[in-house]
Nucleic acid binder design. Structure first.
Lengths: 276, 276
DNA sequence: CCAAAAATGGAACAAAAATTCCATATGGGA
DNA sequence: TCCCATATGGAATTTTTGTTCCATTTTTGG
C-alpha cells in the first residue's frame, strides 16, 4: 500500500524473469542477493533442482531462498520452478496427443521430424561407441600427429566433416590444409612424403576425393580414410581406414558419428603432437 | 541365477540408457512397453517430470511406470531421474577439473575420449528436444520455403553447419547460396528482398557473419538466425532466431544438436516448398 | 552506543511425491 | 474350459520436499 510493495505479480516468461533479476540484483540484502546472483547465473538449474539444492549451492538457508522466491514475485519455489519447467513441455502437443502420435507414427509435419532425426543421431552415437574404431583411431591420430602438414579432403556430405576438423586442428595449432578445389586448383604439389592426409568419403564415393587421395599416396604421403562402408576404394591404398555407421531417417543419413569421431581424432592428434 | 534375470545394474550413462531402452523395447509386456517407448521418444522429459506425469503421459498407472524403472535396472524413478538430471548439473562444478584431466590423464587416449564426446553428443541431442521451440522451427522453415534463394552464412565453427545445410538443400532442389567469402567477394548484391538468409553463429559471435546478416536485412531479405546464446546480436534484427544448447567436453562443444536441427529444417523447408 | 527494524538460519509442519502392497484382471498352456 | 502365472491399477505407506514459524543475529538510524 505504501508504495514499495514487493512486486505482486510474478514474471510470466523466462525473459521477464531474467530482466527482473537484473533489476533487483544489488538492491537486496546480502543473502537474498546471493540467491539472486546465483540464480541469474544458473538459470538452467532451477528446473531440475530442489529448494535445498539451490539454497545450498547459493550458500544460504532454504528459508532464505524461499523468501527470495516470494520477493521475486512468486508464491513459492514451486511456482518459480513451474515457469522454468514450462519451457521444456509447453510448446509440445499435449501429452495425450503425443501418445496418439506415437501410435499412428505417420505424422511428419512438426516436431516429430526433429525427434526422428535426434533419435537417428542417438543411435549413430551408440554405434560409434560399440564399433571397434578405437584401435584404428589411435593409429590414425598417431599418424596425423607425426605429419608435417595434415591434409584434409572430403566432398559433398563429407565436406562438413573435414571443414569442421580443419577448424578444430587450426585451433589446436596443428598445421592443416583443407583441400577445396576452389578455382579447380588441386594443390597436389603441396603434398610431400612427410605429410599425412585424411580423406573422408561416404557411399556413393566421390571420385575426386578418391583420386586426390590416391595421388597423395603415390607422392609418398601417409593416407588415412574415413568412410561408412567396407567397400570404399580407400581400403586399397590407405594405411588405415576407419568405418562409421550412421543411422538415417527417410534416406537422410546423420553426420553425428562422423563428427564426433573426427572431433576426438583432432584432440588426440593435437595431444600426441604436443607430447613429442 | 537361471539365466534371464532382469538386468541388475542400472545404466551408468545416457548412452547406455538409450542403448538398453532400444534393446528391451518389444520384449516387455504391453504396458511396460508403453513406458519404454514413450520414454525412448521423450528422454528430455525425465529430468523435469514426476512419476505420475510420465505414467499419465505414457498412458499407464504410476505403479507400472515404477516397475518399469526397476526392470530397467534402476532402484526406482528417483534413480533414473538422477541420471538424466546429471547432465544439467555435472558440467557446472568442475569444468576446470575436466580440462586438467584431459591434459594429465593418459588412459583416455584409449576409447575414453571418444566415449566422452559421444556422451556429450547424446546430451546435446536430448537437450535439443526441449531447448528449441517447435513453432520457431516451423516459422523458419516456412520463411525459407518462400524465399527465391536461400542464403546461408556461417564462419568458423558454424561453417560446417551451413555447408552441410547447403549440401542438403541442393539435393532437395531448393535454390541455395552458401556465402564463403572466397576471394573476399561478399556477394551482397545477390541478396534481394524476395530472398531469405539463415545466419549461424555461436559465441563468441563472428563479426563478419553478423555484418553480412545485417546488410541482408537492410536489403530487405528475411533473416533468420541460429545460435547458442540469448545474447546473440542476431536477435536485434532477425525475424526469428533459434537457440540450441550444445554440451561440451573440456571446452570442445559438439555440433550434434545444430546439425540435427538444420537437417530437420532443410527437410521441412523442402517439404513446404513442394507443397506450394 | 542503544533501540528498533530487518534479516537470517534452524527446526517444525504441511504438502506432494515416490514407492510398495494387494486385490483384480488378463493371457497362455494343460 | 479351467487353472496358474503374470501383469495391472488403485489405494496405503513412506520418504522427500516445500513452506512457515520463531528465536537469534545483524544492520540501521537516532
Amino acid at each position: 500500500m505504501t508504495e514499495n510493495d514487493q512486486q505482486a505479480q510474478p514474471p510470466a516468461t523466462i525473459t521477464a524473469a531474467i530482466n527482473r533479476l537484473d533489476e533487483i540484483i544489488g538492491t537486496l540484502p546480502k543473502r537474498m542477493d546471493q540467491c539472486a546472483t546465483f540464480t541469474r547465473r544458473n538459470l538452467h538449474l532451477v528446473a531440475v533442482s530442489t529448494v535445498s539444492d539451490m539454497a545450498k549451492a547459493a550458500g544460504v538457508a532454504p528459508s532464505v531462498y524461499m523468501r527470495f522466491c516470494q520477493v521475486f514475485g512468486f508464491g513459492g519455489y514451486s511456482d518459480m520452478q513451474a515457469l522454468f519447467r514450462e519451457q521444456y513441455t509447453s510448446f509440445r502437443p499435449d501429452y495425450e496427443e503425443r501418445l496418439a502420435t506415437l501410435r499412428s507414427d505417420q505424422d511428419h509435419s512438426s516436431g516429430q521430424l526433429l525427434a526422428d532425426f535426434a533419435e537417428a543421431g542417438q543411435k549413430s552415437l551408440i554405434s560409434l561407441g560399440n564399433s571397434v574404431a578405437n584401435d584404428g583411431l589411435i593409429k590414425v591420430a598417431e599418424g596425423l600427429s607425426q605429419a608435417r602438414i595434415v591434409h584434409l579432403i572430403g566432398a559433398r556430405r563429407a565436406f562438413a566433416v573435414v571443414s569442421n576438423m580443419a577448424y578444430l586442428l587450426e585451433n589446436l595449432d596443428v598445421p592443416t590444409h583443407l583441400h577445396t578445389h576452389v578455382g579447380h586448383l588441386s594443390n597436389h604439389h603441396l603434398v610431400s612424403p612427410e605429410d599425412a592426409m585424411l580423406a573422408v568419403t561416404f557411399a556413393p564415393f566421390s571420385q575426386t576425393t578418391i583420386n586426390d587421395a590416391r595421388i597423395a599416396a603415390e607422392r609418398g604421403a601417409t593416407v588415412f580414410g574415413l568412410t561408412d562402408s567396407e567397400k570404399c576404394p580407400l581400403f586399397e591404398f590407405a594405411t588405415e581406414t576407419l568405418v562409421v555407421r550412421e543411422h538415417e531417417v527417410a534416406g537422410f543419413r546423420s553426420l553425428n558419428a562422423s563428427l564426433t569421431l573426427t572431433t576426438a581424432l583432432s584432440v588426440l592428434t593435437a595431444e600426441k603432437r604436443k607430447a613429442t
